[in-house]
């Protein structure tokens, strides 16, 4: 640790486990660093696999590389400090990063009146962060583990959705219908950039008008810049604050202003409706997969069971969304 931080000595506190994370564990600890550029107290998080961590998400070493790339691109992420990819120290791979302040609580960010004076500014900041993340483009040697597909990002996603639906024991005509509609209404691919993959309330930490950290990089992939925009804007991530399109936090105009102040790249904002449909299908499939984890006995859980039934809400949403787009145009 001292070696990684170019310090003379590092004293570590006893770690305590933080809440959340079925696939990963986060431990909170504090360091006292003597010497070097990190000298002084250092608030840390240690992230490692949970014992039952079966996942399709990126292993810790990849997450660390993603954090490094995002940090280097100027995005507000917890500074990644040290990685043990082989598990030599605690028996499984882990990495250490700086601990961020602020809150990621979706209920606070979407509903609390205390945030109202800062909503516009915070949403703009969320747009700026996204533009910084999207400034990372392929090919990138440090991110060589991310598959670079020859298909356009939308085509790849729709193929993935169909394969995921085929793995479920039942068929879902409404989801197939939405996927077919997307097949026939695919936007042209404006650019391929690093997509965060789960950019929404819950993974964005904020303190008033400021973003303090973008977390959870496990679903990052090369994608169209609008995929992240559609994900954070989809109704399922507004946590009941439907009038605020960007994650229940603020307006799309604010997000766009922030994004464009930071980027030379102009995503096809006019097709936001399409990307919300894609996000809704993705979330419906995740919900069905979670319900299936409960039903199969892999992980019995009231929460997973209820999530499975959420898919029906997404189906209704899809009918409404596609109808609205066809009647009033995208956007």
């Amino acid at each position: 640790m001292a070696e990684r931080l170019n310090a003379d000595e590092v004293q570590l506190s006893v770690p305590s486990k933080m809440s959340g994370g079925a696939i990963q564990e986060n431990w909170k600890l504090d360091a006292d660093v003597t010497g070097g550029s990190y000298a002084g107290p250092l608030a840390l998080v240690l992230r490692t696999d949970a014992p039952s961590g079966v996942s399709v998400s990126h292993p810790r070493a990849h997450e660390f590389a993603l954090l490094k790339a995002a940090f280097a691109a100027g995005a507000t992420v917890p500074e990644p400090l040290a990685l043990d990819a082989d598990g030599d120290v605690v028996g499984k791979p882990f990495y250490l990063m700086r601990r961020a302040t602020g809150t990621a609580d979706p209920r606070f960010l979407s509903r609390d009146k205390a945030l109202d004076p800062h909503r516009s500014e915070l949403t703009e900041a969320i747009g700026r962060e996204l533009a910084r993340i999207h400034s990372i483009t392929p090919p990138n040697e440090d991110l060589a583990f991310l598959p670079l597909d020859t298909r356009p990002p939308v085509t790849r996603r729709l193929d993935e959705f169909r394969a995921q639906l085929d793995d479920l024991p039942q068929a879902y005509p409404t989801l197939e219908w939405a996927i077919r509609w997307m097949d026939l209404n695919t936007p042209s691919n404006s650019a391929t950039v690093l997509g965060h993959g789960d950019y929404r309330c819950g993974n964005i930490m904020a303190d008033g008008p400021t973003v303090t950290a973008v977390l959870d990089w496990e679903f990052a992939s090369w994608s169209d810049p609008m995929e992240d925009v559609g994900w954070i804007c989809a109704r399922c991530w507004r946590f009941g604050a439907d009038g605020r399109r960007v994650g229940g936090i603020g307006d799309l105009a604010d997000l766009r202003r922030g994004y464009e102040s930071e980027s030379e790249r102009y995503p096809d904002w006019d097709r936001i409706g399409f990307w919300e449909v894609l996000a809704t299908v993705r979330w419906a499939i995740i919900a069905l997969q979670q319900g299936q984890r409960h039903l199969s006995g892999e992980e019995r859980s009231m929460e997973l069971a209820l999530t499975g039934r959420k898919a029906a809400e997404m189906e209704l949403d899809l009918l409404k969304q596609i109808r609205a787009i066809e009647e009033n145009g995208d956007g």
Binding site: Q170, A171, Y172, P173, L175, E176, W177
Partner: peptide, 8 residues
């Protein structure tokens, strides 16, 4: 539903 899904 399976029939309809595959036809769509």
């Amino acid at each position: 539903s399976r029939d309809l899904a595959s036809e769509i």
